[in-house]
Amino acid sequence: MTTAYYVHVTIDQGKNVMLLDSGCTQSAFPLKEFQKLLFQFGTQKISHQFIIADIDNAILLRLDFFENHHCLLDFQNAQLKIRDSAVRCCDSQGNLLKVNVQVRQDTVLPPRTERFSMARLSTKWVQGTACIEPADTVPGVLVATTVQDPDKQQVHLRLMNYTDREIRIPAGKIVAMCLAANLTRPAPTESASHGQLPEHLKTLVEESCQGFSPEEKPKVQALITEHQNAFSSSQYDFSKTNVIKHGIPLVPGAKPLKQRPYRHGTAQEAEIEKQGQSLIREGHGA
């Protein structure tokens, strides 16, 4: 589902929201004649000519408004930038699309480590399930993207320091953004829709059910069967990640070494060839 972007405005001292729609040319107001409106974004007053149209009760800010007032819609930060100021976007009910996530207390990350930390939302969140995304405000720190239900305006953060130095994050520092999550359930596989357990997961179910009661074991199997797409089907069924870019630090001025390839025995050569061909068949080699 596509997110609609609205902004808060004040018209005749009354609070309203306006729908941003740069795909059409003329801004519209739900009546039946032309009208020039004076309204306010935050502390900035703006006058604009609207066409009064037979539409639902939504005030539309369209391409003419964007061009006349030099506007820029910042999707990453959910902001409408007007001249030298910015207005945060909201939904049709006036709830902000994104709010800041701040660490609750001073946090120390030793080199090459990760930890979980509690954080708070800067504004009340009433939209249910949320996606926590990194704000890229602390150099050297990665924040994991997660889906959570903010409890008492709090969320859990997974922080990683990928540098060789200690990093300190002061309390109140904005490290992430909270935005509404539109969740969709993937279509179940044929085996999952029939409650069937694939062969490659039977051992996993047996090991996972150890220590559970006879009443609990069927629930564990049903859970694994429902989410079977999350598990690898073989040793060659793996994916990639772009969370961290791999790099090999080089010594300044160092030159490449010239040496012969390592020698292997007959049995080792055969095994190397076998595994290489297996990777090629599975699409992981060339």
Rank of each mutant, 00 (worst) to 15 (best):
M1R: 14
T2P: 14
V9E: 02
Q13N: 14
K15I: 06
N16L: 05
V17W: 02
V17I: 07
L19Y: 09
L19G: 03
L20S: 02
S22D: 12
G23M: 01
S27F: 00
Q35G: 14
Q35L: 15
K36D: 11
G42A: 07
K45A: 06
F50K: 00
I51V: 06
I51F: 03
I52A: 13
A53E: 15
D54S: 13
D54I: 04
I55Y: 05
I55W: 05
L63E: 03
L63R: 10
E67C: 02
C71S: 09
L73K: 05
F75Q: 06
F75I: 10
A78S: 14
K81Y: 03
V87P: 07
C90V: 14
S92R: 07
Q93W: 04
N95A: 07
L97Q: 12
K98H: 10
V99E: 02
V99S: 06
Q102P: 05
V103P: 09
P110L: 09
P110D: 09
T113G: 13
A119T: 05
R120F: 05
S122G: 08
T123H: 12
K124H: 08
W125H: 08
G128A: 10
G128Y: 13
C131G: 12
T137Q: 07
P139Q: 06
L142H: 10
T145Q: 12
T146W: 04
Q148K: 11
D149T: 15
D149E: 14
D149A: 13
V155C: 04
Y162W: 11
D164V: 09
D164Q: 15
E166I: 15
E166A: 15
E166H: 13
I167F: 11
A171W: 12
A171D: 13
M177I: 03
A180H: 15
A187E: 13
T189F: 01
S191V: 02
S191E: 11
A192Y: 01
G195P: 05
E207S: 03
E207D: 06
F212M: 05
F212E: 03
S213Q: 05
P214V: 08
E215L: 11
E215Q: 13
E215R: 10
E216D: 14
V220F: 01
V220I: 14
L223A: 15
A230Q: 11
F231S: 02
S233W: 02
S233M: 07
Q235M: 10
Y236F: 15
Y236L: 15
K240I: 06
T241I: 02
V243R: 02
G247V: 06
I248R: 11
L257C: 07
L257R: 12
L257Q: 13
P261S: 02
T266Q: 08
A267H: 08
E269N: 15
E269Y: 04
A270W: 04
A270K: 14
E273H: 12
Q275V: 12
Q277N: 15
L279D: 09
I280W: 08
I280S: 13
E282A: 12
A286N: 13
A286H: 15
